[in-house]
Write a protein that binds this DNA or RNA. Structure first.
Lengths: 251, 251
DNA sequence: TTCCCCAACTGGTATTGACCAGTTGGCGTC
DNA sequence: GACGCCAACTGGTCAATACCAGTTGGGGAA
């Protein structure tokens, strides 16, 4: 099974073989892969070498290991497809924020925990809000859950001068959320979203319950009123769970 | 440095310590981390344990190793910000496809290699194109380069009946690209993009020259004409290199 | 002075061996 | 028959050791 003369490392040959069995469906999603010790016998290499191969496939998101149970081909959970153009005024007037609207659509039960704090603006957010460094911002730090499971992190930043004395410094901002309140205050909002992806920090991995080899999608939403940025929200969600749908016709 | 009684594995303690030094800036981007053998002395654990810690940080995209040189804190390259609403008819009329327009914006030199083939429709693409399985599709398989470096893969699928006898089966589709030709043929196109992220396949890693711990952004663009899908393009790009900008105001 | 080569670094691969720690199912007991 | 325990699986951690394979810089030869 292993060609020692090929110059290709043994652990790579093992990994490639296993990857191939997954790709061809010989090991379908959810299937239990032979145990490490069985693979040692099958490939005729030592256990660390087998583990190295499996390590590779885990960090590539192909396999998942469960202590005491075995190694399994990853099951991709059902994807939640988020329609991003739902930020329209019409939807907000109907009294629902974006997350709640998505929940309706997807048929799951949403819940949100909010923590509010105030800090001097810094880094990328200060830049996007076009604030002098040191200017105070109101931060709404949220964890969104679907059926109790944390699925999305969102941290909103608003210049403190806009929120002082308003419900935007309360936990509950009322029907339609932050954006509805800002429009009531006379702002006409436009939105831009900046989408990226990266590996999660260890904190994010814990909070979102992510397994090895799962990247996160990041969305930075900037709300502007007459060209002036009034809010920046940074969202982080499991790339396993989410796809973002954008209408991009733009004519 | 290592607390053996804490219950936390030694390699995790090492990884957390190093991760912390990167986060706090003690090890800035590009900085060379002490060699494995030096870390063995510093932490008082064996080399395999140190390697396990470094392995973890590599698959998280925190560190990169270079054989014979050392281990370095990852440098995030400059991000190419792609404005997705540039698919407008106006831009196409100006005679440029999306990739070429982005190149203008970003100040780099674009080049594209195209391979054309014909296959029966299958899987997700067949579904998105609403084709009976087995119907033939024209596939335009492209590699986009910026200053010679491959930065994006794009595979377009069109029902063969739309392309037969047209320039869409040639390598060069002329000014404005595929979409301009489709509109000339009487289609009025609308676009939707579906954005996701995942770890690359080993083939994609090779083609795009990705290092361990770098996820890819995937964009599936569906072009429809009077509600009927006429083209599906699947794009793959390094999440290190790209952020996607969407205007999402939608009122 | 210039050039080349090689020693001494760097990380990469692979083995053997030992023990820890969850999980599961069957056997024995009540 | 129901329960509980424990043996026999599973993967997880860590060590000591050996050698391979790129990279680099300095010393010696031309």
């Amino acid at each position: 099974m292993i060609d020692k003369e090929s110059g290709v490392p043994a652990y790579r040959q093992v990994a490639d073989t296993l990857r191939d069995r997954v790709a061809t469906g010989q090991y379908p999603p959810g299937h239990q892969v032979p145990s490490e010790r069985d693979l040692v016998d099958e490939f005729g290499v030592s256990r660390p070498t087998i583990r190295q191969a499996i390590e590779l496939l885990r960090s590539d998101g192909v396999l998942v290991a469960e202590h005491g149970r075995g190694i399994f081909v990853r099951q991709r959970p059902t994807v939640r497809r988020l329609a991003r153009n739902r930020l329209s005024r019409a939807a907000r007037d109907a009294g629902r924020g974006a997350f709640l609207a998505d929940a309706d659509e997807g048929g799951w039960t949403p819940s949100v925990s909010v923590r509010i704090r105030f800090e001097p603006a810094a880094g990328r957010v200060a830049e996007l809000l076009q604030l002098a460094p040191g200017a105070e911002v109101t931060i709404r730090d949220r964890i969104m859950r679907a059926d109790g499971e944390p699925v999305q992190l969102a941290v909103s930043h608003l210049p403190r001068e806009l929120t002082q004395g308003t419900v935007l410094e309360d936990v509950d901002t009322g029907d339609g959320g932050t954006y509805a309140r800002l429009e009531e205050a006379g702002h006409r909002l436009r939105f831009e979203e900046l989408v990226g992806a990266r590996m999660p920090t260890s904190e994010e991995r814990t909070q979102l319950g992510l397994t090895r080899g799962t990247p996160v999608l990041t969305v930075t939403r900037v709300a502007t009123s007459s060209g002036r940025p009034v809010e920046v929200t940074e969202m982080v969600m499991s790339a396993d769970l989410y796809e973002l749908l954008y209408d991009v016709s733009g004519d």
